[in-house]
Design a protein around this nucleic acid. Structure first.
Length: 526
RNA sequence: GGGGCCAUCGUCUAGUGGUUAGGACAUCAGGUUUUCAUCCUGAAAACAGGGGUUCGAUCCCCCUUGGCCCUACCA
């Protein structure tokens, strides 16, 4: 039975790299019908952050990475190997450290931080590797007892055996170390709490973890961990060390060079599916020559394997994340719209629209308005937190406006208010905007076009996008003009912008009165 | 300084002892379109270097170089 764990220290936010580690540990367990455990490594009291554990659980579960054992949001725990929070297990670690001392596999050390600093400084200056010099390794039991009774501060150090060691990494293969390069690690700190090394080994053993999946930065301490297992007489787990997630400059992903907390990306409007998908692909691929890139969590649970984890570190590329984000949002939105389309009209035709460049189109001649209303609502759900109060007050206009800006909502929802602004009030613009060589427009023929447009629009009573489109195009043909010659001036009159949603959409959103008002104003200007 | 890991387009990566070294993002150029975007088509873009092994190496081995990680009473 396979058991994996994710064992973060609660820092207050979820690092991108942590999310990926958690994901891979979770996926490996799922794929192999095993158990995924969450354990909190909070042995460093200096780093205590209130609320961090709750946040961690919340965020992970938001992503669907749910643990079968570990702490829960209400402060209780599930699973038979608890407690799953290291600060609640300190006696266990102490007991085991003492056992090691007993066995001669560890020893008390009374060296002061000052002495250690000095030692390291001297060693570095002499070009030697900074390591503990075993100053306290051979103290007699009496001496130890005496020092403790004198109230001297102590730690317990692991005694690295004089014996070379190696292990087989599931991702990297055989890795060997010479024991003389390994330092005597502190196991119990002077505050009586364990360091990562001890706590980790003890917990993984008692929680019956079979596969330790963690970041590459742990490779150098793995031999020490294995020595610990041996000292206890336990069997070490399998190890899989994941490649690092990197900054643009190939250093370990860090705060200084951008956002590293997954919460930041959530706040910016990135969707869960995209984030998971992107992070999963950072160092893993589906293998077998597959070029598929879009995977849901459920799909990943089926196909994930450690064999396809890459060895080299991967740079976190925002552009690619943006691509995943857009594609996932579109996919999710389309599927919601499909289901809604068939709900309101079982005759609804869902087709590929050639005119709109092979996009999915919904043809609902009788229910056009109802459908677009729903579309606006759904888009508002997705964007409301990025829209200012004033716009939210005019919900009707807002939803209409959103319904013609679907791609913008998917692509860059943070900027959506800016995109929508002109619907609410037309910006000041210069008449030179009407002149567009490519469209074949001048100030003069723009005015003519607008005059004609005004005449025409006044006669239209059924103010739907499709009617507007058909009628206007028809008129253009009758007039013998190019589309651009007629449409560009209208678009400018309506938006006052060099770029905006299309003319028919804009007319529909603004409504007859406002549209005609803006066209009148433009005619005045010209 | 010591130890370890790693090395295919700018980025994420696929790939094999014999391939025109494949895909995606980004970039650029065309095209469709009422503008922007979308969309379509196309282009440019990589096996770090040197030795071996081999009939043949991007692939296997060694070395070099480079990058990174660790080197705490942090994890």
């Amino acid at each position: 039975m396979i058991r994996t764990r994710f064992a973060p220290s609660p820092t207050g936010y979820v690092h991108i790299g942590s999310l990926r580690t958690a994901l891979y540990a979770y996926l490996f367990a799922k794929k192999n019908k095993g158990t995924y455990v969450l354990r909190i490594e909070d042995t460093d009291q200096k780093r205590f952050v209130p609320g961090a554990v709750e946040n961690l659980i919340k965020v992970l579960s938001l992503f669907g990475i749910n643990h079968e054992e570990g702490p829960t949001l209400d402060g209780s725990e599930i699973g038979n190997f608890g407690p799953y929070t290291q600060s609640k297990r300190s006696e266990l670690y102490m007991k085991h450290a003492l056992e090691l001392v007993e066995k001669g596999k560890a020893y008390y050390c009374f060296c002061t931080p000052e002495r250690l600093d000095e030692l390291r400084k001297n060693q570095s200056a002499a070009g030697l590797p900074p390591m503990y010099d075993r100053h306290c390794a051979n103290l007699s039991p009496e001496e130890v007892k005496q020092k403790i009774e004198n109230g001297e501060k102590w730690v317990i150090r692991q005694k690295i055996p004089n014996q070379d060691i190696g292990y087989k990494d599931l991702i990297r293969g055989r890795i060997d170390f010479k024991s003389i390069t390994l330092d005597d690690q502190v196991l119990i700190k002077s505050d009586g709490l364990p360091t990562y090394h001890l706590a980790n080994v003890v917990d993984d053993h008692y929680m019956q973890i079979t596969h330790v999946i963690r970041a590459e930065e742990w490779i150098p301490s793995t031999p020490k961990h294995i020595f610990l297992y041996e000292a206890f007489g336990w069997t070490p787990p399998e190890y899989a060390h994941l490649p690092l997630v990197l900054n643009k400059d190939r250093t370990k992903l860090s705060k200084r060079q951008g956002d590293v907390a997954i919460e930041d990306y959530l706040k910016k409007g990135y969707c869960i599916e995209a984030l998971i998908n992107f992070v999963a692909m950072l160092g893993w691929n589906p293998g077998k020559g597959s070029t598929e890139e879009m995977f849901s969590l459920k799909e990943l649970e089926e196909i994930f394997t450690l064999e396809n984890v890459h060895k080299a570190g991967a740079i976190f590329d925002l552009e690619k994340l943006n691509w995943f984000n857009y594609n996932w949002k579109k996919r999710l939105f389309d599927s919601e719209m499909r289901s809604f389309a068939s709900q309101i009209d079982d005759q609804a035709e869902i087709s590929i629209d050639n005119k709109k460049n092979l996009k999915i189109a919904f043809s609902l001649p009788e229910k056009e308005e109802e459908f677009k209303k729903k579309k606006g609502e759904l888009l508002l759900n997705r964007s409301s937190e990025f829209i200012p109060e004033e716009m939210l007050e005019n919900k009707d206009l807002l939803e209409k406006a959103l319904s013609v800006c679907e791609d913008k909502v998917h692509k860059n929802v943070r900027e959506i208010a800016k995109e929508l602004g002109f619907f609410f009030s037309i910006p000041k613009y210069d008449t030179s905007l009407f002149v567009n060589e490519k469209m074949g427009t001048t100030l003069e023929n723009s005015k003519t076009a607008l005059l004609k447009a005004k005449q025409l629009l006044e006669t239209i009573d059924l103010w739907t996008e499709s009617t507007l489109g058909l009628t206007i195009i028809d008129t253009i043909k009758t007039l013998g003009l190019k589309n651009g010659q007629f449409l560009w001036p209208i678009r400018v009159a309506l938006s006052g912008l060099p770029a905006s949603p299309g003319v028919f959409e804009s007319l529909w959103v603004l409504g007859k009165n406002e549209s005609l008002k803006r066209i009148d104003e433009a005619i005045e200007k010209l």
